[in-house]
Design a protein around this nucleic acid. Sequence first.
DNA 1: GACTTGCCGGCAATCGATTGCAAGCTTGAC
DNA 2: GTCAAGCTTGCAATCGATTGCCGGCAAGTC
Lengths: 334, 334
Amino acid sequence: MAVTISDVAKAAGVSPSTVSRALTRPERVDAETRTRIFEQIERLGYQVNRAARGLVTGRTSNLAVIVSDLANPFFPDIVKGVQIRAQRRNLTTLLADSGENPEAELDLVSSLAPQVDGIILCGSRMSDEQLVKARQLATLLLVNRSAVGFPAVTVDNVDGMHQAVRHLRALRHRRIGYVGGPDSSRSHHDRLAGARRAAAHNRMELVELGNVDPSFSGGAAAAHAVLLAEVSAVLTYNDVIAIGLMHRLVGFGVRVPDEISVVGFDDIPLCEMTYPPLTTVRFPRREAGEAAVDQLMRALNGAEPEQDAAPLPTELVVRGSTTRLHVTTQGVLS
Amino acid sequence: MAVTISDVAKAAGVSPSTVSRALTRPERVDAETRTRIFEQIERLGYQVNRAARGLVTGRTSNLAVIVSDLANPFFPDIVKGVQIRAQRRNLTTLLADSGENPEAELDLVSSLAPQVDGIILCGSRMSDEQLVKARQLATLLLVNRSAVGFPAVTVDNVDGMHQAVRHLRALRHRRIGYVGGPDSSRSHHDRLAGARRAAAHNRMELVELGNVDPSFSGGAAAAHAVLLAEVSAVLTYNDVIAIGLMHRLVGFGVRVPDEISVVGFDDIPLCEMTYPPLTTVRFPRREAGEAAVDQLMRALNGAEPEQDAAPLPTELVVRGSTTRLHVTTQGVLS
DNA sequence: GACTTGCCGGCAATCGATTGCAAGCTTGAC
DNA sequence: GTCAAGCTTGCAATCGATTGCCGGCAAGTC
């Protein structure tokens, strides 16, 4: 069987309590005894039994991440960020997939709650009421979603859009479109607001092209609206929409970026694999994952959610789907 | 605090042992008592404390999945399959990412081992020796990798390639290429063998175009070899390579599929999003994930790995990256 | 030299389940 | 009517840690 704390105690010539103390409050045990204990721990390959520890402390040293869809390329980097930080803190990560279903998400929270110290909700689809219920079950932390009174990790969507618009402005575009995401999404509204403000600020015309499902087919479906709007460039709610849109535009024989420039949001790995590669705004996913663990731990230690951390910075990534506008209508050729 | 087994016992007017028995061996307790107990469990919302149970039974009811890279679109569906089956069996899933690093993978196994009943290794990068070491730490199950004496879930790579080759044959191709994956990969060898045999069987010429890294850039790097080989169609080790290859070919101005047909393997979600969409062979990932849990449980109950389950079936998915060969060289125009 | 103070470490209770053993009861056979 | 067999249930030990409490000892104070 496995090595227990008593084995170590016997080998080091102390009582089990002392070994336990050496592990959990090292300063409470004499330096010499401590090193003797750690030598034996090393030699015997002792590992704490987390079940036993959890039983008495009430803490599991587990944390859960719930994402809406594992296959969505947006999430892996967030999860990786979480894992990195969690590992450093000696926490184990459980990962669950809600399948975009708010009820399933709430069920997951309730079934995961007893097994974890806290839960990180990535892009939660739950309503505010459901969130409140969920909070009674476990300590929560939201990523890329915010609700009053909940600790959250957010990114600077508004500034990201500013950068994108400025980029298009520099490339001489004047009339641009925005293909929106789900109306229920907070980040959609932030991004739209950012686009509006930046367009106004740069004296550009912004055509709002409605909301679509944040999926490949949603983006494809927006192609008609984009063409009808006669814009020379399009911003989109996210990369997946942008990629679907480009796909359909190319299918129509429209040249990207020569006839229409396209800008995504998020910078998922796919962006480099499309033809042309997609210009986009980077969402700092790994950083968000790491920050999530830190904030969750802070919340577990009783911090107020009021101390909302500043949004994480975003950054424009220029690739091949945007280019300088060739003005031909007025006879000006660039 | 949480509801315990004693609370339920008190409420139902029995001893804690009886409640425990009702939970773990229902047939050992009187039917009437049992229903009384379950009523109280329901009413009080009792949930077993898994730490406490684990402490005495030695089982954690946890299982781990280790993948080489979470961001690889190949894995999510496998993980989903695992989660579905695990949930049904009341198991919790831990997910870890080895970052393609065999040593890190072994470390993960050793740190996860005490917390789980078994570990599912997806496309493990470990050497056979490392696998043997890992086996001493935990009960293992391999997915998409095989090694003698280890229980594994595999798919029918050979037949998949047969289907792909037959497809190209029907489209009149006669001289085709195969861009290989890592030489260390078992499935690469299976797929190559399948391609060879199928080509011979269909009287086609198979040009082996070497091995590349199974990544987007690996695929792109193979473009020159493909062009030099003067083949009219290419099979690839996997979809990611195929997509990288297509990307580069299009960059060279080569029309896909008109000049060269391309076939991938795996059927990752990306295949539908490329232009043209990629013809490929479906790797039944969700099914593999589900089978993995079942087989792992069988292994935990002491089954012999000899009873190797049959490989899961693969299936050709025809999309837009393959087309009928237009024979122009001999003056024959179709 | 007596007494206070504080560090160090052991004892024993505890967390919430499971399970071997045995007692009590019912049932049925002889 | 007695006794064996079998079913149901409770008692108490156990899993492997943590932690409050207390005693022993050394150092420091007056």
